[in-house]
Nucleic acid binder design. Structure first.
Lengths: 343, 343
DNA sequence: AAATAAAATGATATCGCTAACAATCCTTGT
DNA sequence: ACAAGGATTGTTAGCGATATCATTTTATTT
């Protein structure tokens, strides 16, 4: 059988009995087209399995169908998960993802941003934490007047649309889970202060304790950096206390994994002698033994939504950006596994 | 200052005093252009900071500037590392990466492949292990006559260009490192048999033992699946032996991490009582305690090279594909850290 | 119902590049 | 030295969509 050539906009126009412009308008959902013609066009599109040629659209139009993604630390499952899902979503809308790493050097970061905008000519940019809170980057973005979405931002919440989850509530809930399991000596390892989520999770922890009339000594609270090693140091200190906690909530899985290691080094059984809770539910959560009780972050959903927002043309008018519509708080989920238990 | 518009091919042509076609030819390194004109053009390109408009190239030409990437398991640092680096390389050549997951369902995989070729119209495809050894996928690719590069393939090595490292030698070397450290009771956890690398690493291990006149009981060799849990099971069995090994070489870091956990459960100190070696040198290698002695896989280099090969037009003629030129064995590196030591 | 405004639709030029072919310019062999 | 033949360079015509503006249709006002 002869391979059917891919349908062009003209084929659709002919089949539907309208002009190519009408088809174009229907495809980009932009301008108003009468319901009747829209239906005709949609029918033809379906019949011919038409999908616009992205290259042609890019050449002719003002969109580039490119979305930039700025991340900080490559080596987190957070980034790769986001990326994979983002890539998939992009495929559906005909967009492409251009990922770029930003480092500690602010100057270079600004250059990277400008390059994305001017050379690569992206239609929009996604900022992952903690990049989403670097003031200079935000300023550059604003000046360029380019649409951008931030993921879990911590500051200047009115500056742009953003997507996040309720880190405070999650911190609260998982702490309360430990309390319900009979724990009152609950320690916490705070996440990297360069991310707002750390503060929120910590606050949730504190408030859960307070609302259950539980007091803990200051030594039950340690500062971590979201890395395994920082978690290990924190856990060692905490487990060296005469009056050890019976449960530790770490602000991410990686530090929680470190807590388990530290417990083992101290001949403590998890969860029998020490309950551990993490945060993220990444690969690591089921990689360590025992599997982690943790919070599932909706990373994939965030990625999909971010692409969707940027791909929709709602952003074209940058002034609408502050509207309620552009603040998205996605649901999280408590995942109860084997690293915590009733005492 | 007024922002300079991006230079077009015509601008370059005028500046260099040649026709646009000559510029086009220089840019795509395709046909022969005299050295004199090439120099002229290059000069103009540099002066104007010209970079071809990818959308226009795609529309006019026969290339799509899209490269497909087929992977199996998302959740490995292998895939995400490859992906990130691939994305970066693509940016340099103006290509884009379209990633697609393939699962156990062969039927669906074939559809995914055909879709990549026919709908997305990629110029070439990269196959990560173990996808690179699924016969049906290979057949589909061959039939479509589309260029593809395989990473660490295990079978039909003449079928396509490929990139790999010497897994056998790496297995040999790291085993010999343990031997040099005074170990003779060395266990091995074999990797997932769906990947050829597992067999090669295993064989390297065996041959290193043999060439040092070392015999080990069969119980020192366990089958793993590259997952943490499989490694844990294997390690538990091995450490339950009356005559335990003093060193274990696991075929990847994830299983090596599991070995460390198992050791801790058995109150064994690493590396004092048990040396552990892994393979990959991913994030995990420095995430566990103690840090892993392991083999650094040149994943990033593999990604860069794969993109480079596919982006070059050398593949246009699919018949040249078998030449020596298209077999690349990259260097690995032994990384000696704290999980192994002299006894 | 006529005049006017507003909305929907269509015609055409063009985006920046390369394919395909035409027109040159050198080589050579004799 | 001249023609044949190969290598290099140029000309022209789209690729498939959208922007822009012109035109037609429909709604609104008086």
């Amino acid at each position: 059988m002869a391979k059917a050539k891919r349908a062009r906009i003209q084929d659709v126009a002919e089949k539907a009995g309208v002009s190519t412009m009408t088809v174009s308008r229907v495809m980009s959902k932009d301008t108003k087209v009468s319901a009747a013609k829209t239906a005709l066009v949609m029918e033809a599109v379906k019949a011919l399995n038409y999908r616009p040629n992205v290259a042609a659209r890019r050449l002719a139009g003002s969109q580039s169908f490119l979305i930039g993604l700025l991340y900080f630390d490559l080596d987190t499952s957070y980034v790769s998960k986001f990326l994979l899902r983002g890539l998939k979503s992009c495929r559906a809308t005909g967009h492409h993802l251009v990922a770029d790493e930003v480092d500690d050097d602010i100057e270079k970061s600004i250059v990277a941003v400008k390059d994305l905008i001017e050379v690569t000519q992206v239609d929009g940019i996604i900022l992952l934490p903690p990049v989403c809170d670097i003031p200079e980057v935000l300023t550059a973005l604003k000046e360029a007047n380019i649409p951008f979405v931030r993921i879990a931002p911590d500051s200047q919440l009115n500056l742009s649309p953003y997507i996040c989850m309720d880190d405070y509530q999650a911190g609260f809930d998982i702490t309360e889970l430990l309390i319900k399991q009979g724990h009152s000596k609950i320690g916490h390892i705070i996440g990297n202060p360069n991310q707002g989520a750390s503060r929120l999770r910590y606050q949730g922890y504190l408030d859960a304790l307070r609302s259950n009339q539980i007091n803990v000594p200051p030594a039950y609270i340690e500062q971590g950096m979201f890395t395994y090693n920082s978690g290990l140091d924190a856990a060692k200190k905490m487990l060296a206390l005469k009056d050890k906690p019976t449960a530790i909530f770490a602000a991410n899985d990686e530090m929680a994994a470190a807590v388990i290691s530290a417990a083992h080094m101290n001949q403590l059984m998890v969860p029998e002698q020490l309950s551990v809770a993490g945060f993220d539910d990444g690969h690591l959560a089921t990689t360590v033994t025992p599997h982690l009780t943790t919070i599932r972050q909706p990373i994939q959903e965030m990625a999909a939504l971010a692409i969707e927002l940027l791909a929709s043309k709602k952003f074209a008018d940058a002034s609408k950006v502050n509207s309620r519509e552009f603040r998205h708080v996605l649901d999280f989920e408590i995942v109860e596994r084997d690293s915590s238990q009733v005492i």
